[in-house]
Amino acid sequence: MFETPLTNIDYDKVYEPAEDSFLLLDCFEQEYQSIQQRFTGRVPVVTEIGTGSGIVTCFIKQNILPHSIFFATDINPTSCSTAAETIKLNDTHETHPFTFTAMQMNLTSAVRSNKIDLLVFNPPYVPAENVPEIPKDLDDSSWLDLALLGGQDGMMTTWEVLNNLENILTPEIGIAYILFCARNKPDQVAETMKARGWKVDVVIHRKAGWEVLSILLFQK
């Protein structure tokens, strides 16, 4: 069993690792071999959208794909600095070149097309009337809402990524792990994406409190 990374988080400003984050860690532990095989002989570009504390990227760097180029994006500037801190905090034996960059960015918008080999996304998946606006003030308490609320069906932000997935991932090689809750209707999402030519698999699912969470793997 791989170790869970340490974090040092201001819980008023940055999403605290919770059941969904830990499901992602378990997902990557389970997928270890197939991911390793897939990227043999390649330096993969790994990108996590909405990295929050950075715990998931840190776990992948430590345990799954150490020799990679890591991008972690988040709209929340405090998340970006926290994620950078998480990487530093856990980096006790840096013997190989790696590159981790936390970037304040919406989704993957400034990353050039078709460059990402492994995309990870724990989206704001809670159904809500709207996706919240970006707060102006660093100390605004609504930054956390941005990490949670996903508009209609909790899918507004996730669809932005899915609709653009073909441009985001490297052709043929790129894969995406995206987390859903039951209210996102992941079965319907999978059917829609399959109709567009994607292979979609449920990698892991779990009842977490009153939510049922699942992680879907998208590949061509």
């Binding site: 500037p77 950078a84 970037m103 304040q104 960015m105 919406n106 400034a110």
Partner: peptide, 18 residues
């Protein structure tokens, strides 16, 4: 211009630039 501060680039655009 995308600013870099404390090693973190800010690649966000304002509403009208998206």
């Amino acid at each position: 211009s995308y600013p870099i501060s404390n090693g973190i680039p800010n690649m966000l655009l304002s509403e009208h630039e998206i």
